[in-house]
Design a protein around this nucleic acid. Sequence first.
RNA 1: GCCCCUGUAGCUCAAUGGAUAGAGUACUGGGCUUCGGACCCAGGGAUGAGGGUUCGACUCCUUCCAGGGGCACCA
Length: 529
Amino acid sequence: MIREEIKKLTEKAVKDLYGKEVEVRIEQPQDPVFGDYATNVAMTLKKNPQEIASQIKSDILEKAEVKNSFINFFISKAYLQKQVKEILKEKDKFGGLKIGKGEKVNVEFISANPTGPLTLGNGRGGFCGDVLANVLQKAKYKVTREYYINDIGGQITRLGYSYVSGPSEFKPYQNADIDELKKDSRVIRAIEEYKNYPDPDKGNEIGKVVANIFLKEKIKPIISEMKINFDVWFSEKSLYRGKEKEKIINEFQKKNLVYYNKEDKTLWFKSTKFDDDKDRVLIKGYRTGREETYFLSDIIYLKNKFKKRKFNYLIYFWGADHFGYINRIKAAAEALGFDKDKVRMIIMQLVRLIQQGKEVRMSKRTGTYVTLDELIDEVGLDVARFFFLTRSPDTHLNFDLDLAKEQSEKNPVYYIQYAHARICSILKKATVGDSTKHLKLEDPAELRLVKQLIRLPEIIEDISKDYQVQRLSQYAVDLATTFHKFYQECRVISEDKNLTQARLSLVLATKIVLKNTLDLMGISAPEEM
RNA sequence: GCCCCUGUAGCUCAAUGGAUAGAGUACUGGGCUUCGGACCCAGGGAUGAGGGUUCGACUCCUUCCAGGGGCACCA
């Protein structure tokens, strides 16, 4: 990676001159007159930039020039020409890094309750989670994509009751698919059983039957339509099969981190010892039904991930409504002796539905209900993915289906795909020869394109560090733009055989990088459009 | 009341504390006898308001204004 190499060169120069070990930051200037890469190290060290610049010598650089106290680096042609060959050699491996060192990462996302269809918010978290997982994999982390199924608890019980006493018992998804599922023989059987033995817990049984059907027949198909492959579907219920619950409570007792309230028979975890606002209940008291809180499940789950399955990092994609949960989960991690900094939550701001300029609440009855599969049907998967992937998680997303439909034809994703199709069309007209020979690439448009190509590993590195997935779509657009400009400036197939071969190699390299980028985003790279 | 997020061009969004704040879209005007015009080129337009830190602030701190989310023995 060129940025890495420049960084090392600069750090060495600083060390040789001043005997200091410093971490140098290499950035990319917006204006090309300031070079391809630049550093402000002279300013931060309060040293003479010219002195440092003169100390840096390498054939990867054409020059290192000082302007406004920055040191500006210009990459040499020879280096760029060589990089094209590298890309052709690495093919789909290009962009890959080793920084993950094979460490295990668990990325948990969507994890929607199996009590209703997937929403736009689930789509947002789903696509971002999936793409982050792809990127981390590319950076040599061992990634597990995981879906946590809430198949136990109040939601499920209420869902079950809604089949017995009508939809009003289950507000969030009134009418949603209830009539359809009421005709299902499995559901009918569960309802019959309930009627024969009207045990309060049976509501839970019906709920479980419905939830299972929902998961299998509604959620999983949409997820495969989203082109997301989960490695693990983890059942919350399964957490209670062994003795983990008791073990954890014992451990907390030994560490004096729990207390029991006799009056209402609740067991509390002292999360205030770890930066949480208040203590949290682990075992519920006066309510009927289940005694464990969701929080307790999550503690068992966390331990399962860290201890039993030996993950090095846990990443959670949550909606903003789960914000308050961060501290208590981190508190639990600390209490169990894990490093809380290895538990990372990515909070996605909520998606609101807008119609005719006003926010509307989801409701099937009023016809203002947009589900994820509806969106994908309407605009296509590539557009849907790109739509969510361009926005930073912090953006409060106002979703207007009419606007999305109207703009889908102009979506930048087509601009990127068009570049790919154009490349394929050129490559059909000629054969790329021996690319190990010297590639005579000298035109500014050619060199700009190569510089853009070799940024992919840098993007992977940046995303692996800060999880800002939107960098990737940003990059894809930049790359497509640079290619289209190159295409405008330089004719690929011409009388000049050497030049044609050099340019064909460059075009093929661009195809590889573009395809790798689109693959990471889960977006198709069409040969023709 | 306390905690978190947001406010950038008409609209939708970018910008690891860096140099002249970038794209798309919309609008205006140009460019194909040549590899795909779903393209390219040019133009006007923006950091909510005030203080502060810094050589340097959309970015960090602070006050205010506006919007969203959270503050459960729900998930």
